[in-house]
Design a protein around this nucleic acid. Structure first.
Lengths: 151, 151
DNA sequence: TATGAAATCAACTGTTT
DNA sequence: AAACAGTTGATTTCATA
């Protein structure tokens, strides 16, 4: 479904998402229009999901990463699922429903622990069906990427 | 340090990282070259960290997300820190040193639980100083973005 | 910093294989 | 179906204010 050349294109884009198209075409040995056509097709078929700007969290007062385990009641009523309500909070970057704990694992970014407390008390604890939270505080991040190994 | 116009530009880019530059310039009311200059400057000063292609994990056999708590010995010897060694594993997207557990929290993407077992046994457990691992399996993901709220 | 002119590149359309 | 070439319009660089 994805041939050698398209794989090559994806690898180049993973290294540098805003590389000029002519540069990609030079590297893979095709005409620019052919490369563009391949990229458009991969965008259409969902192989390429999109493009993101990565902003420096420290420049926007978002240095503190926290992982929050959220225990919920099994039969939640309320409007919408708890997962969707958590996902709507902008400080929360990831919401995962996890096995073995009847609940969710979410990743949050705040300026500091004070804002984290705010988030826990005023945004998360108020959601119908949330029983308890347990927070893991990040002291240092060695790696943080959305890049996946492709083959 | 970041004025109103640059903030506006960043918000537009967060919504659509590959929006044409003329379109941005129309929205903020500047010449295209002026917008570009501002973007270049923000790239240089590290406000913009980079740009990423988001590939569909399912198309590349990386559907399974796992969070792995790794307990380590306090005084690790060996070559390089454990954090750096974990960061070098391509299946691992995030490596965080966490408070309260003498260890790391990592996010991994594998094709399935079999590959996860492989990763745990052959790549993680073999690192000098690693005592134990505890894995949280993700069943469903509601949200997964690197976007941060800016203000 | 912002601008406008000039060169390079992107993207659409045709044509060919 | 995929690659290419030509045209149109956007991006980027540069001189200038």
């Amino acid at each position: 479904m994805i041939d050698e050349i398209s794989m090559e294109i994806l690898k180049i884009l993973q290294d540098k998402a805003r590389i000029p198209n002519v540069e990609v075409s030079r590297q893979v040995g095709l005409a620019p229009s052919a490369v563009l056509e391949r990229i458009r097709k991969m965008e259409k078929t969902g192989i390429i999901d999109g493009y993101e700007v990565r902003l420096n969290p420290e420049r926007f007062s978002r240095s503190q990463i926290s992982y929050i385990h959220i225990t919920t009641r099994l039969h939640s009523s309320g409007k919408g699922t708890i997962g969707d309500q958590l996902a709507a909070i902008p400080e929360i970057q990831e919401v995962h429903f996890i096995a073995g704990e009847d609940g969710y694992l979410v990743k949050a970014r705040t300026a500091n622990t004070e804002e984290l407390g705010d988030l826990l008390r005023n945004q998360i604890a108020t959601i119908e069906g949330v029983i308890a939270t347990r927070t893991t505080t990040v002291l240092h991040t060695y790696k943080e990427t959305s890049r996946i190994p492709i083959r």
